[in-house]
Nucleic acid binder design. Structure first.
Lengths: 189, 189, 189, 189
DNA sequence: CATGAATGAGTATTCATTCAT
DNA sequence: AATGAATGAATACTCATTCAT
């Protein structure tokens, strides 16, 4: 990549980050381009889809969130590690205005968005889930994607509600430990 | 209400119902009016706000869902009644994915929507929650609105995922079973 | 006219008067009808054109203004009588929001408006002009309609400006007395 | 400015000029754009506000009118120069009747319009007024803006009427000729 | 006579995306 | 590669006027 191209990409990324914070991920392309001091064409060249730009902007945070999992896993007990990581995840999503809505909009521009966010985080959550599961603290049959997307959806709620609902979800994870007790408590399932 | 007016209102309601299912709640006014065979002015006369139309369309389903609570409560055990009712609720919402995001969009048009949906259902869920709570089967500190909105948010997932997540939520609702793991790690929760 | 019809007309007139003061002469028909407690159809029956309603509302003021001319003529000197009457006229027009604009709009509804206003006032101004003219105080060749419409147009300006311009007009009326002096001062005209 | 952009601007200006003459300044944006053979977006890019377009269209005429003042001032006697310039001004406005009412409509779109028109003409009229005033031919206390706007308002009348009224205004401007009638009746005016 | 329901034309403005320069 | 000009579809909402009830 040529030096000037790189410079442009960086400028766009910077501008988009600000714009997303101020106006949300729906901020018009022109506005972002203007802030970055580039033409819209340039922006499109590097980020053909809005989702590309969005995920690029949040890439660092995403990676940091993913990486945090290992540290948490080695510091806290499985359940607490999971809870703390989900809190990270919730905060990551909740502070991005319009992000959750965009993820569930049917606009083709945002189509790949969910995957972009899910991909780097999947192994992280998998690790935490496996730890807890191996320790017999949670049911073993939970799909990471269910949780990743479910929690993301819950981020539509206000912060306090989201936190309460996520806590409930975690409690639900634990309430059905593998083995006879589970079967006993919830017959017919 | 004049006979012809009534006829028009019904036609609009019918058209809107179809439209909302096909194209979502964002369907242009003109289109709905055309489907109903009326002028846009007529539609506006009866439903000045988009939210009015949306809630009118779903009013019947909402009421039916709300009424179902009592019957379920007297037929099934508290937890099962709750689960079955939530299943109703999920089914009600699942066909209306655009609706959920509309509710959380910041568009002023949809501002009153959350309340319109919550209002008739709140007492219904409250009843079921109280029953289970009084029987000591679930924790007593759950807000109906949290659950109503939380489950609604989860309806953004695909059907299977939604069902799994809602099941998890219900599991989380249930009192932490007496036993070392849960009580020990998270006392007072 | 039947008693109830008369009642309706009065109610409409009353409502329109208020409406015109509050919102200007452009106030929607429906609003006026609603204020009067009648249907729009009723309003249209009695005042098919907006101009009909407007002039009906101001009829009394118009007549009062017209009648004032005789009194002024017999109380003041010709010029002062004229000035005072024009001040009346200006006030009559200036306080009617949107009236002047309506008079000059090309909307067919307002087409007859200028005439409605001019008609009753023409003789009044004619009287005053003739008095001054006969006394040799103003040039004798001034058309009442020119002045009526010219002053009306000047009412588009703000109050102070209107007054200054009307004063200038009156001064202009006087500056060209019939006879040799006039010819001398403005050769070539 | 790119060649193609320039071409478009010119086309729009041309189209708008025609449109304003034919249909008035209210002519729909779409129509003007269509006449110019450009998209509405293009029109908006160059003239974000309707007032921008209007003043751009008349800019040339306005400037020409303003410039004429100096020539007239050096060719004719003060009063005649003034009269001739006002005739220019009247001619300029007479074809733009909708414009005058637009200027006084309370529509925010046209808010800046009065200033746009007044600004370039103010110095021109000032010059002529000062010349006449210094020569003792007219009263010295006349505001340019009063006259500019007053004459504009009078342009709402038909051509002949406008001319007569403007002539009257000019007559009013002239110092009250020495003589009993005027001086006696209205001393100090 | 009165009512008020129905009609539906009319328009500004935004913005994603393309493509000529 | 970059630019940014051009495109033009898409949509809500108002209100005068008519006419069925």
């Amino acid at each position: 990549m040529r030096a000037d191209a790189k410079r442009n990409v960086d400028a766009v990324l910077e501008a988009a980050k600000t714009a997303f914070t101020m106006t949300g991920v729906h901020t018009p392309v022109r506005e972002i381009a203007a802030m970055a001091g580039v033409g819209t064409g340039t922006l499109y060249r590097h980020f053909p889809l809005r989702a590309d730009l969005v995920s690029a902007v949040f890439r660092r945070e995403l990676d940091a969130c993913a990486e945090a999992a290992a540290a948490l896993a080695s510091t806290y007990e499985p359940i607490e590690a999971l809870e703390r990581w989900l809190a990270h995840y919730v905060e990551l999503l909740s502070t991005k205005r319009g992000l959750i809505t965009a993820m569930h909009s049917d606009a083709p521009t945002y189509e790949s968005l969910t995957e972009c966010f899910q991909d780097p985080l999947r192994p992280a959550l998998r690790l935490l889930l496996d730890n807890a599961s191996r320790a017999g603290l949670i049911r073993p049959d939970v799909e990471t994607d269910d949780l990743l997307q479910g929690v993301a959806a819950l981020c539509l709620l206000n912060t306090a509600q989201t936190q309460r609902m996520v806590a409930l979800l975690v409690a639900g994870l634990r309430n059905a430990p593998p083995g006879p007790p589970s079967t006993a408590t919830r017959p017919g399932r």
